[in-house]
């Protein structure tokens, strides 16, 4: 079997919602350059709906594909659905990720949560979701994937 599924390769080669969203009202980032991946998510939320979303990613093929898929999964959806997005849902939508690449889907979930947190902070509202767990892209001792 190839390293990546066709869906992963499709999202890697043709990423959806790529770039900067100029009028974003929620921006979040997860990962760090030492570990080799950073994801940045831009959200445009209106009336409780994710009207638009985009991403920028520094990382491997599955990191780029995970960001792309995660944005697709929340685009046009109510904020509550975005808050409930799990890394597992991202990985499943990609038709699976190799075990050592699961952290890419975790990063995508984390980056979206960070962006939502930023949105609530800017609105002066308490963050209703679960706190991002602070995945920094480093896998040692990490239990987020299970």
């Amino acid at each position: 079997m190839a390293l990546y599924s066709n869906t992963v390769m499709d999202h890697f080669r043709n990423p959806r919602n790529l770039g900067v969203l100029e009028d974003a009202n929620g921006i979040g980032e997860a990962g760090n350059p030492v570990c080799g991946d950073i994801m940045k998510i831009y959200l445009k939320i209106e009336n409780g709906i994710i009207e638009d979303v985009s991403f920028e990613t520094f990382g491997c093929g599955s990191a780029i594909a995970s960001s792309s898929m995660a944005t697709e999964l929340i685009k046009g959806k109510p904020v509550e659905e975005a808050l409930a997005l799990t890394n597992k849902a991202v990985a499943e939508a990609l038709d699976g990720l190799p075990a050592h690449k699961m952290h890419c889907s975790v990063l995508a979930e984390e980056a979206i949560k960070e962006a939502l947190k930023d949105y609530y902070a800017k609105q002066g509202l308490p963050f209703p979701g679960e706190e991002p767990e602070g995945c920094d892209g480093c896998c040692e001792g990490c239990t987020l994937h299970q």
């Binding site: 390769m9 080799g36 520094f58 990382g59 491997c60 093929g61 990191a63 690449k101």
Partner: peptide
């Protein structure tokens, strides 16, 4: 600077070039 090696290799492969990288991935 500013990029990760595995994505570089995959895109070079799409262009017909087989190479390797020392990235963690």
């Amino acid at each position: 600077e500013g990029i990760e090696g595995e994505s570089l290799l995959l895109l070079l492969d799409d262009k017909g070039i087989s190479a390797s990288s020392g990235s963690a991935c």
